[in-house]
């Protein structure tokens, strides 16, 4: 049965998606010399927020101070603009394929409330882990693989390897 392309159930072929994503990543390296990222934009937001609320604290901190410079605001970071683009691009795709809808997606075995708590906890862990690894699935793993970085490939294996293990432990959250 042919799917209606606008009822939200249509996804592009995963290999086509992969090639397109690979071309975007390649173009990013070709133009900027660096890969794509995601968690870095949140880090910039955190650094800017803390720097605005408590400038002295930010300058004294061993971590924030690494990302502060006098003339450039950390918000004017490449990754922040890139992530704004991600939001716009995903919104465009969601509009095109009829997926714009406010909802909490969860397994029928758990409540929406439980899903939201798990999502927030997962996000928090991802935030912490991405700082240790100096990047997340995009910046460390995917971009790292494109340039065959040892760090990126080891981090990628650690993410997927442990996610397999933990996913089965938390199976009830999903299926």
């Amino acid at each position: 049965m042919e799917h209606n392309k606008r009822d939200g159930s249509f996804y592009i072929n995963p290999y086509l998606g992969g090639v397109l994503l690979g071309l975007v990543l390649f173009a990013t390296y070709y133009v900027t010399g660096r890969g794509l990222g995601a968690s870095g934009a949140v880090k910039s937001t955190v650094v800017t927020t803390v720097h605005t609320v408590a400038p002295q604290h930010a300058h004294n901190s061993g971590y924030y101070s690494q990302f502060l410079s006098d003339d450039i605001s950390p918000m004017s970071n490449w990754l922040v603009f890139e992530v704004l683009g991600v939001l716009a691009g995903a919104f465009l795709s969601g509009t095109l394929y009829g997926r714009l809808k406010f909802k909490t997606e969860h397994s029928p075995k758990i409540t929406g409330r439980r899903r939201l708590i798990a999502a927030a906890a997962g996000g928090m862990l991802f935030g912490i882990g991405s700082q240790f690894a100096r990047g997340c699935t995009s910046g460390a793993a995917l971009s790292g693989m494109a340039v065959l970085s040892a760090s990126g490939i080891i981090t990628m294996m650690a993410i997927f390897g442990s996610a397999y293990l933990f996913a089965w432990i938390f199976k009830k959250l999903w299926i």
């Binding site: 997962g122 862990l125 882990g129 293990l165």
Partner: peptide, 12 residues
């Protein structure tokens, strides 16, 4: 970092 992210992945 990768292991912590994997944990977060499975939860989130």
């Amino acid at each position: 970092g990768g292991v912590i992210m994997g944990f977060g992945f499975a939860l989130g």
